[in-house]
Design a protein around this nucleic acid. Structure first.
Lengths: 245, 245
DNA sequence: CGGGCGATTGACTTTCGTCAACGCGTGTGG
DNA sequence: CCACACGCGTTGACGAAAGTCAATCGCCCG
């Protein structure tokens, strides 16, 4: 945890213009019409900087806002009552954090920045209030929640039915696809997380992650240099996942 | 699939009274005030019967309604593009089906009745319309979605970090707890699903499920006769799950 | 009563986890 | 500027857990 400052994150109250945001096409709020967009800017109660290693929110904290990532990279970790911990996901620009806090008015996971990040804070009371007025926003919020459920189901499928190699292949393809959608290379990426964090997310041990990387590397499918990964043969990687039976 | 009739399910358009429903305390819509409750009854566009083995909806079907289970027992199965299939959950009275269909206007899993069932159909357009008017309903819907996310995260934790015995113990405790909340025994239950379905849900093979049941039985923790399970030592069962480290 | 699906059990194989040693790279302090 | 330390990653040897394949059993339903 950083000791740079008293408060965990920088705050700036500068009003932002969603309508001019360069994330617009990838931001989770993007498909609003211009009239609604002006109203939506009211939602952004603050922008916050979060430094690498610091948390945006923690399990048990009072839930009061959702966050959209403007830049940077997060992991969310979920902890069971008995202390079991697991990485629930990795989030990047345009994605949303905090949705699982709505049920109990308390965040139910930790959101930790894996690199210095900036987020837009959306006060949840205001979201409720405004989506009461704008049916388009209401629908949008529901879709966001539903998407999260859909994505979680995909992860459950991965955890429940795939073997180590398939899991890692799926993980790499998913990451690179999301990065590509944000203008990055479709074949090269820099991992922002450790082998242990990847393993936790994929339900395997860090040694197995490492071994599996080595295996993919030996097979000429990817090139791995520490956290730098290049996908040499995307087709072979997809083939690995394909269900055999 | 049943061939009893042309349409897959019975439909009845008889207006129901949510305010008089005996499920009220466990139904996912329950915490509405009386005034709102009258409005909510408008939502129930139909009640449907679904016979054992039949599906309430299937992957790819146009999404148009959410469902609340009045009686009976369902499984939901999720299928990946390449044909991998997995049981995503088991649902009982008062629980909701179809939430993952909101994102893409298409159901993204199959809901299959494991015993004859009755459901209330809630037209989604009407939900949107009405929750636009009743802020209480809007909030409620958001909480339901968020709860689903929270539950999925618990399953992901199970799949990612537990061993076979822990998974089965967690599964049994969860089932029995939900049944107990509905007035059934806190220690005895009848499984509505096969070993294979349990295995699919828990990310293990049916033989492993069977062996694990036998193990728990040998240890005197549960009594298993086919699908009839009695929990002899709930404390020992909970102890099994407790994280060791 | 017989057929068939589901459940159990055994023997063997595979996959992954565990434990341990070592290597690489970065950042810091002498 | 170099040396060192520490965190992270890799690799190997071994063991444990779960998967696979196969035989058998038993219950339920026609």
């Amino acid at each position: 945890m950083s000791e740079r400052m008293d408060t965990r994150t920088h705050l700036s109250k500068v009003k932002v213009a969603c309508s001019k945001c360069n994330l617009r096409s990838s931001c989770i709020l993007y498909d609003m019409n211009d009239a609604d967009m002006l109203r939506i800017e009211e939602l952004v109660s603050a922008q916050r900087k979060v430094f690498r290693g610091d948390s945006l929110f923690q399990t048990g904290e009072k839930f009061k806002a959702l966050y959209v990532i403007r830049s940077g990279f997060f992991k969310t970790t979920f902890t069971s009552p008995d202390g079991r911990e697991q990485v629930m996901g990795f989030q990047m620009a345009g994605e949303m954090l905090g949705l699982d806090g709505i049920v109990n008015d308390v965040y139910s996971c930790d959101a930790i920045a894996l690199e210095d990040a900036e987020v837009c804070e959306l006060n949840f009371d205001q979201i409720e209030e405004l989506s009461h007025q704008l049916i388009g926003l209401q629908r949008r919020v529901l879709k966001i929640l539903s998407l999260e459920i859909f994505n979680d189901h995909s992860v459950m499928l991965l955890l429940g039915s795939m073997r180590a190699e398939e899991r890692l292949a799926t993980f790499l393809l998913s990451l690179v696809q999301r990065l590509h959608a944000r203008g990055f290379s479709p074949t090269a990426l820099v991992l922002r997380m450790t082998r242990e964090e990847i393993g936790s997310y994929l339900g395997m041990k860090l040694e197995t992650v490492s071994r599996t990387f080595s295996k993919l590397s030996e097979d000429g499918i990817v090139e791995v240099k520490q956290r730098h990964v290049r996908i040499l043969n995307p087709e072979a990687l997809k083939q690995l996942i394909t269900f055999k039976s």
